[in-house]
Design a protein around this nucleic acid. Structure first.
Length: 598
RNA sequence: GCGAGCGUAGCUCAGUCUGGUAGAGCGUCACCUUGCCAAGGUGAAUGUCGAGGGUUCGAAUCCCUUCGCUCGCUCCA
């Protein structure tokens, strides 16, 4: 019921984005390209502000996070270690009758009699279709059931009174070419690679194949050791990166929400394994209730770190104008979790295209996932590269020495089991896995381990879309003549708003006003993005800035010039969201404005 | 990838059924005017009607192909 209205809202937002220069379709003059979007003047500022706030929050204002900017194309082995090459290259095929999609390697092998047809004819209209089709008949089933399926197939293609043509049969063994549910022929398997492929070097042979990164995270893991050694950080610490990633999505949808080229803001925060915490501190601190657990403590286990980062990230969203009630949360169930993940909490935003579930509740779409990924990623890179991803922990070594033998044995056993579980899951043979797990457990006793990781990973473009959606508001007013008009106000948080302040002379045909306005504009410009406008009536200029989301407008009027001497060198500051004005001296303007927009 | 719908000026849309060579409102720009919330006046620019092909004397309009957008299915590490 609410659906049509919501689509209207989405259409308005898309339309505004284009009209005001937030988002354009990529390559629009050539008809566009599916799944790619460009940011116009306002969108570019908005996006830059969001990334800046993230970087300041996650890197500059913390002691325990270092930055990284890695390449988009990396050694292809990285994507084997991460598992992307395997999970991305599934051949897929569709049932010709029901259109259901199958992974070609997951179709059960079947045997039976294949009924082939060269086509079909409509006995009334005489119309003929020459498309070939086949049905697999399981042993013991009557031939009529194969003919019935084939008839359905040709009915879908527009015939009514069907006469099947060219029937012939063939015994087949262990075929995967037919839909096990109905016997219908499947389309030929088509490889489904969701990674963008390219070639490094001019020869473009298979040996030169490389991929555009499908996520930024792996670069962080690959450079973990270098960052650790050059940043003078020690576990626990994080590496942050903002950058482009590429996925050849089957269906890009919902404006910029799912696009093929997108940007991520990711933190990989490395922590000690719980076993190490226990050895050092005697026990592992665990969550005691919901909410922010406060400043990080040395005895936190992975669960507290996970909770901490979820809450930190919510504070970030609140800080740029997405209040907690606009967000949703999804705690992934054990079935949903990737096999290496221990827990994942998604932070959601309710978009106009978000679905309402059977209980009438809208959960929203994912803006960010905060995953506890154990030591899977670094372990994989250690295994594939042959380079150690372990760290040495002095605290652990001294802590371990103080433990009694029973405690040592207990912790050692649990660490051994965790490592063994990882090895076996990733296909390491039993014997080798046991040996390596034992080596790992022995290493722990000497102060060595592979760090675990908590990964808050956010999509920039979907956040931008969320901010635009959240900011969008309409004011409908009726003038004296009874004409109604709708004004759009983009209520961005001042921190992310594209323009921070508009500067206007009240009238443009009074040179003194114009000169003074330009003076104020030049005063503000070096510190906060300002927009000067003298065209049209003052109300129109306010309205234009409302649509761009500019939180404040400064107007230079005759009082500024001293018409009322006590108001000399004061201006009016007009607030976007309520239209209210206040008067302040030009000399106080910057000091008033800057704290609000930073 | 499959199915359905849609694509005309910067935006919203009329015109498509019934082929005769493109319009409205808003916006934009210039000048005038305007003493605080899209006021008014004058003037101007902007469309190979998504693209390509076909039918026709003639195509925005009919047909085919293709690209894009929306929705449903599928996919989403």
């Amino acid at each position: 019921m609410a659906e049509p209205k919501e689509n209207v809202l989405m259409e308005k937002i898309v339309s505004l984005c284009k009209r005001r220069g937030f988002v354009f379709q990529s390559s629009e003059i050539y008809g566009g390209i599916n799944g790619f979007w460009d940011y116009g003047p306002l969108g570019a500022e908005l996006k830059r502000n969001v990334k800046d706030v993230w970087w300041r929050t996650m890197v500059h204002q913390r002691d325990d996070v270092a930055g990284l900017e890695a390449t988009i194309i990396m050694a292809p082995q990285i994507w084997r270690a991460s598992g992307h090459v395997d999970t991305f290259s599934d051949p897929m095929c569709d049932c010709l009758l029901t259109k259901k999609r199958f992974r070609a390697d997951q179709v059960d092998e079947q045997s039976g009699t294949a009924y082939h047809y060269t086509g079909a004819k409509d006995t009334v209209s005489g119309k003929e279709i020459n498309e070939t089709y086949s049905v697999l008949l399981a042993p013991g089933k009557p031939p009529e059931s194969a003919r019935k399926t084939a008839t359905q197939f040709y009915q879908q293609r527009g015939l009514q009174n069907i006469e099947l043509l060219g029937e012939n049969t063939e015994k087949v063994e262990k075929t995967t070419r037919y839909n096990p549910e109905n016997g219908s022929l499947l389309t030929p398997p088509v490889p489904f690679n969701l990674m963008f492929k390219t070639y490094v070097g001019p020869t473009a042979t298979e040996a030169d194949v490389a991929y555009l990164r499908p996520e930024t995270a792996q670069a962080i893991f690959a450079q973990f050791k270098n960052v650790l050694e050059t940043s003078r950080q020690q576990v626990p610490f994080g590496i942050a990166q903002v950058g482009k990633a590429f996925r050849n999505e089957v269906t890009p949808r919902n404006f910029t929400f799912r696009s093929r080229e997108f940007e991520q803001m990711e933190l990989e925060f490395f922590i000690k394994p719980d076993e190490a915490i226990e050895a050092i501190h005697g026990s592992v601190a665990k969550p005691t209730g919901p909410g922010h657990p406060g400043e990080p403590q040395p005895n936190w286990g992975w669960q507290l770190w996970h909770q901490y980062w979820v809450e930190e990230r919510v504070r970030f969203y609140e800080g740029i104008g997405l209040s907690r009630d606009t967000l949703g949360f999804h705690i992934q169930t054990p079935e949903e979790l990737a096999h290496y993940a221990r827990a994942t909490t998604d932070i959601l935003f309710k978009f106009p295209f978000s679905k309402v579930d059977e209980n009438g509740e809208m959960k929203g779409e994912e803006l960010e996932g905060i995953a506890a990924r154990s030591d899977f990623d670094l372990s994989q890179h250690q295994r594939f590269s042959g380079k150690s991803m372990g760290v040495f922990d002095e605290e652990l070594r001294t802590g371990w020495a103080k433990l009694d033998d029973a405690k040592k044995a207990d912790i050692s056993k649990r660490y051994y089991e965790a490592r063994l579980k990882y090895m076996l899951k990733t296909g390491v043979p039993q014997e080798k896995a046991e040996k390596e797990a034992k080596d790992n457990a022995d290493g722990l006793a000497k102060g060595q381990y592979i760090p675990h990781v908590i990964e808050p990973s956010a999509g920039v473009d979907r956040l931008i879309l969320g901010l635009i959606t959240n900011a969008y508001s309409e004011v409908i007013s009726t003038d004296d003549k009874g004409k109604t008009e709708t004004r759009v106000i983009m209520k961005f948080h001042p921190r992310v708003a594209p323009y921070k302040v508009g500067v206007f002379p009240l009238l443009k045909n009074k040179p003194e006003l114009v000169a003074k306005a330009k003076e104020v504009f030049n005063l503000l410009r070096p510190h906060a993005l300002a927009f000067y406008d003298e065209a049209g009536a003052i109300g129109r200029r306010y309205a234009r800035q409302d649509e761009a989301g500019t939180p404040f407008c400064v107007t230079i009027d005759f009082d500024t010039l001293g018409e009322k001497p006590e108001l000399l060198n004061t201006v009016t500051v007009r607030h976007r969201d309520d239209g209210k004005q206040e008067r302040m001296p030009i000399s106080e303007l910057l000091g008033w404005l800057l704290p609000k927009v930073r």
